[in-house]
Design a binder for these strands. Structure first.
Lengths: 122, 122
DNA sequence: TCTATAGTTGAGCAATCATTCAACTAATAA
DNA sequence: TTATTAGTTGAATGATTGCTCAACTATAGA
């Protein structure tokens, strides 16, 4: 039987697997969970979000802070906006961004404490 | 002046930016933070990790649970291992995997409660 | 010893993604 | 009205990445 076998025969501990399957959230939930972590899993976006966890900032200031272009930042902000991770308000020409809800800040904190608990370099 | 200007001229609120810059963790920390979220930000890996948060499981059982191949799972487990997100023990031919530390479980929980707080579909 | 199976690994491929570039809108100031 | 600037956007591109395939190791049982 080939390696591609999608094990129903190659199953070591059926009872355990069944129990875990019953405790697994629905497909849609897990996909959204992965999507949420993915959006935090980029150096540029994590910098943007950490900055916004300190202060409301406009696109230009974020670009300045990260030493990159307004275009690059704007593309990332659009993504973050579409996933309701950040919100914005307009003041004339200037668009101010901030975190959309407190869970995002919590995730950043929990992630940071995970990093810190690991000590210096893997 | 071109759009590529990496604003030192195009700076709206210099004081704010300075304050945020002072509160920004070092480059290395932010990169590791992004890397941590990134590793959680994939449907297959998030499924693996959620399963392991319930039970210690072998490669074959995980493959069965996720209806995929042992090879695909093994590749992902190698990545998770290299980032010290999971650990393993060998029992004869069988390799059992489990979460490496409690922070990973915490992150999954916090992420899930963020999802749940959002209500049904964006 | 011989066979079967759990798991790993490297190469290759198709898909995804972050950034750049150029063109655009909208608001301000002269 | 005209020039300037904040910000957005679509297309193109180079890099990354998740999976498949095939070959491999190692352990267990006959």
């Amino acid at each position: 039987m080939s390696e591609r076998t999608v094990c129903s025969i190659n199953l070591i501990n059926e009872a355990k697997v069944k129990a875990v399957r019953n405790a697994t959230p629905h497909e849609e939930i897990l996909l959204r969970l992965a999507e949420t972590f993915k959006v935090l899993g980029d150096p540029t976006r994590v910098r943007i979000l950490h900055a916004l966890s300190q202060e409301e900032l406009c696109v230009c200031d974020i670009a300045s802070l990260l030493s990159t272009t307004k275009s690059a930042i704007s593309h990332q902000l659009r993504l973050l906006r579409s996933l309701r991770v950040v919100k914005f308000r307009k003041d004339g020409r200037i668009v101010y961004y901030s975190l959309d809800d407190s869970h995002v800040g919590n995730l950043l904190c929990e992630g940071l404490s995970h990093i810190m608990s690991q000590g210096v370099s893997p």
